[in-house]
Simulated assay, not measured.
Amino acid sequence: MENHQALSTTTDVMSADSTLDSITQRKHAAMIKRLSSINQSRVSSKTGPKDPSFESTKSFLSLFTNSKQAIESSFTQIQHNLDANPNPTLDLKLQLEKISQLEKLVAENSYFLPPYEVQSSLKTIDNLKQAFDSVSSKVIPRKKFSFKNKTARKPESANIVAKETIENEQPCYKVKDSPGFRGKENERLTNEFKGSEMGEFVLSDLTGCEVRLKGCTQALFINRLQNCKIYAGPVLGSILIEQVEGCLFVVASHQIRIHDAKESDFYLRCRSRPIIEQSFGVRFAPYCLCYDGIESDLKESNLDLDDDDDDVRSWENVDDFQWLRAVQSPNWSILPESQRIDTVQI
């Protein structure tokens, strides 16, 4: 249901004024510049010819534009080939999935894009959704698909397509071969990473567990957690969190993306703005973890922030990709100091 609502983002929200005040904009621009430098360093160290990430605004916009034009071309072909196509619903479903994938592409790469490029890309996606509505109303006038008015009752055919899209949607990361903790309940789970053990780590399908991770990892993937407490040392790359409820996270990373989180608290240290999507009741506070050797781990991961570092308060500058109005998103808030936990020693 929530995924279907995500595909039904309203036009009035997408067209709302999202201009940042000048001070915030300058700070964000400075952060983006530093991230671009970090990204460029990573580019020069890569040897793989087909790395899936985008290391510049130009390369991202190139793929984004090509994908947009391909979707628009498909809309034209669907309308022109009605007589030769007995079942245009399948073609429409494919374009619906492509629009959803394009929206996810923007969210996953927004950490290095200038703010105006993010807003422009999201506006383009909204235009594609409106074009989808227009084409579907002409092709199947009695069974119109729609992105509009998420509170309105949808025709049955639109519900079927959206349901099939959600059921067929795959996680945005592949973690099946990575080490980690899976399928545990009411346990304390601990791990310490050393040297060659540094890599990707997974926390999946946990209920009522307390997880303690010492040392540095390359990436941390978290999905389907309920009522868990996660205490983790610094992550050199990204932390991806999906489908969590009633949890507490104390984590540090260069990039943190949160999808489908409910009633959870996040104590973060990060060098880019945290991203949330399809989440509500989430609260944020600064990182508060301590263990023997954490200072050297933070330094190794370039997360040893001090009060003079512009990124020291990135944890509180959250981007909500389901809320583009100029006013504060109702889906997240700063955790009041009186309700924060004390420094956690593991």
Score class of each variant (00 low, 15 high):
residue 2 E to Q: 07
residue 2 E to T: 10
residue 3 N to E: 13
residue 17 D to F: 07
residue 19 T to I: 10
residue 28 H to A: 10
residue 31 M to H: 03
residue 38 I to M: 09
residue 38 I to F: 09
residue 40 Q to P: 03
residue 41 S to T: 08
residue 50 K to F: 13
residue 61 L to G: 01
residue 68 K to H: 15
residue 78 I to H: 03
residue 87 N to L: 02
residue 88 P to Y: 06
residue 88 P to F: 05
residue 89 T to G: 14
residue 90 L to G: 09
residue 90 L to P: 00
residue 93 K to R: 14
residue 94 L to A: 15
residue 95 Q to D: 10
residue 96 L to Q: 11
residue 97 E to I: 02
residue 101 Q to K: 06
residue 101 Q to E: 13
residue 104 K to M: 09
residue 109 N to R: 14
residue 129 K to Y: 02
residue 133 D to H: 07
residue 141 P to L: 07
residue 142 R to D: 13
residue 143 K to S: 08
residue 148 K to D: 12
residue 157 S to L: 15
residue 163 K to V: 01
residue 175 V to A: 02
residue 178 S to R: 11
residue 183 G to Q: 13
residue 185 E to Y: 13
residue 194 K to W: 08
residue 199 G to V: 01
residue 202 V to F: 07
residue 204 S to K: 09
residue 213 L to G: 04
residue 217 T to V: 13
residue 226 Q to D: 03
residue 229 K to V: 04
residue 231 Y to N: 14
residue 236 L to K: 14
residue 255 Q to F: 12
residue 257 R to M: 02
residue 260 D to Y: 12
residue 264 S to W: 06
residue 270 C to Q: 02
residue 273 R to G: 06
residue 274 P to M: 09
residue 281 G to S: 12
residue 285 A to V: 13
residue 288 C to I: 05
residue 291 Y to H: 05
residue 291 Y to E: 08
residue 302 N to R: 14
residue 303 L to A: 00
residue 308 D to K: 15
residue 312 V to K: 10
residue 325 R to Y: 14
residue 341 I to F: 01
